[in-house]
Design a protein around this nucleic acid. Structure first.
Lengths: 118, 118
DNA sequence: GGACTTGTCAACCGTTTGGTTGAGAAGGAT
DNA sequence: ATCCTTCTCAACCAAACGGTTGACAAGTCC
C-alpha cells in the first residue's frame, strides 16, 4: 500500500494501535512505557510503532537508549478531509432526494387536492 | 475484529473499497455497476461489499436478480467522533506545551534581560 | 571491561486478506 | 421448459498481519 491514506486507515484499524495513539495525545512515551499496559512482547509493540510511523502518525527521536515516540497529529486531517468530503456529498444527495420527494408530494397535492382547500 | 470502529477503519484501508464508497455517495448501484470500472472479477467486488456491509457502511436490498447497494453514511460519524476527540486532545496538549514554553521564555527574559534594556 | 537497560532485527508460525476459478442459486425473458 | 443475467458460495493460493523467540546493537552505570 503505497498511498498514505490507506496506511493511516490500516494503522488505526487495530485497537491496540488506536489505544497507543490515544495515549500519545496525552504525552510522548518510550516503547517500554507504551508496551506496559498490553499483554504482548516489547517486540510486538515495536512492530506496531513501525506501522504507525510509516503511516506518518508517529515520529521517533533518540535520547540515550530510549526512543521517545511522538504523535504527529496533522495526519488526522488527511482522514478528516476524506471522510468529510464524502459525508457531505452523501448528505447533499440525501437532501436532493428529499427535495424530489417533496416535489412529488406537492404535484400529487396539486392533482388530488384540486379545489379542495380554501 | 468484533468492534465496529476497527471494521470501519479496515474497510476504508483499501483504495478500491474507498472508491466504491465515494461512488455510492452519488447514487446507489448494483454489484455489476460497481465492478465495472475495476479490473477484477465480480466475485472480488462481491467480497469487498461483504466487508463494507459487515462494517455497517453499506446495506443491500433485493430487486429482481439485482442487489442494489446503498451507502449508510451515519457510520462516518463513528470515525469522525474518534478522530476529532483525539485530534482535539492532541491540540490541547500542544497549546499547553506552548504556554509552558512561553512562560519559560518570559522567566528567562526576566533574568537575562535584567537592567539591560532602556 | 562487564553488566544492565532499551529497543530493533531476523526467522518463524498461524490466521487473515484479496484475488482467482468453478459451480450454482434466484429471477426475469422467450 | 430453457436460456440469460445477476450475484453468491466454496475451494484454493500467494502475500500480508500480528504475534512469538532468539540474537544483538547502543548507551549507561559500576
Amino acid at each position: 500500500m503505497p498511498d498514505q491514506l490507506s496506511q493511516v486507515f490500516a494503522a488505526l484499524a487495530d485497537p491496540t494501535r488506536r489505544d497507543m495513539v490515544a495515549r500519545l495525545t496525552v504525552a510522548d512515551a518510550t516503547v517500554g512505557e507504551l508496551a506496559e499496559p498490553y499483554d504482548v512482547s516489547v517486540q510486538a509493540v515495536s512492530k506496531h510503532l513501525k506501522v504507525l510511523e510509516s503511516a506518518g502518525l508517529v515520529s521517533r527521536s533518540r535520547e540515550a537508549q530510549k526512543r521517545p515516540v511522538h504523535l504527529e497529529a496533522e495526519v488526522f486531517d488527511l482522514m478528516t478531509k476524506w471522510i468529510e468530503r464524502y459525508r457531505r456529498q452523501a448528505e447533499e444527495r440525501y437532501q436532493r432526494l428529499d427535495a424530489v420527494l417533496a416535489e412529488l408530494t406537492e404535484t400529487a397535492d396539486d392533482t388530488t387536492d384540486e379545489g379542495k382547500a380554501s
